[in-house]
């Protein structure tokens, strides 16, 4: 799971890092939802500007940001082929049967601008906040405790189960397993074993947790202490979001 851990970047020192996680979470969520509302192409530069500004302020490495674009890039590529060349009437440029059309091009620019901006902001949110704090912030914003518990445990055991699975498949490879469609049976055994191991481990974990006082609710009593600065930033970001939502 290369690149899964964002934690190397969460301890930097920008105001985005310092921003109270609760305000940061809602503020940036407002912003991305506002961005989804945008339907006007001429708002794209403004959207990109806001996003770029936030990204520069976050002092996050752009190489990591670039690597995050890999998954959505495939999707955007498909749209880049379909929309500008097949959608719309106004032909901008023609080469044989290939015609670049204005409406399709604009539609593509709109989608691409939105996708890239939102992805960047989501990246900023999770790269400047430790996951533990994100979950605690969501909890104090009203996420049910059971759900918060599940998020925490899932996060805690993701990496370990990933290691478990890697270990299993390495051992299997040393005895001749190759991940392909012809060895689905072995892949299924490996998956089944992972589930059985998770199940057995969860029983042990529960006992160990009970012995250390799990269920006392004290865990989420994180002293979030917002200062007026946190609120001002929140207000500003919300205003920006509002502008986009209204103009979009």
């Amino acid at each position: 799971m290369v690149g899964l851990k964002l934690d190397p970047f969460v301890h930097r020192n920008s105001w985005l890092h310092q921003w109270d996680p609760r305000y940061k979470f809602i503020g940036l969520m407002f912003l991305i939802f506002a961005f989804t509302l945008v339907q006007e192409v001429h708002l794209i530069p403004a959207m990109a500007l806001v996003t770029a500004l936030l990204f520069l302020q976050s002092s996050l490495p752009w190489r990591v940001w670039l690597s995050r674009l890999l998954v959505p890039a495939f999707f955007l590529l498909a749209l880049a082929i379909v929309l500008p060349f097949f959608a719309g009437e106004t032909v901008l440029w023609q080469l044989g049967p290939l015609a670049l059309r204005l409406e399709g091009l604009l539609a593509f620019l709109l989608v691409a601008g939105k996708v890239l901006s939102i992805i960047t902001i989501v990246f900023i949110l999770f790269a400047t906040t430790p996951m533990l704090l994100v979950i605690k912030a969501m909890r104090s914003l009203g996420l049910p405790e059971l759900m918060a518990d599940m998020l925490l445990f899932t996060y805690r055991y993701l990496f370990q189960l990933q290691d478990d699975y890697e270990g299993q498949s390495t051992a299997a490879r040393l005895r001749g397993y190759q991940n392909s469609t012809s060895s689905l049976q072995t892949t299924s055994f490996l998956l089944g074993t992972l589930l059985v191991r998770s199940y057995e481990q969860s029983e042990r974990i529960y006992k160990a947790m009970r012995l250390r006082g799990y269920g006392q609710h004290a865990f989420y009593a994180y002293p979030f202490s917002a200062e007026s600065k946190d609120r001002w930033i929140f207000l500003l970001v919300t205003l920006v979001a509002l502008v986009f939502a209204l103009l979009g």
Binding site: F153, L158, L161
Partner: peptide, 30 residues
Amino acid sequence: IRQKEDPRSDVPKAALFTAAFFVASLIHIP
């Protein structure tokens, strides 16, 4: 879950399965 006698007993199990499925969903089959 809340209806159960001890709702918390299911939390580790559900979470570990969730994590296991997350890991499984990263498996690529060529």
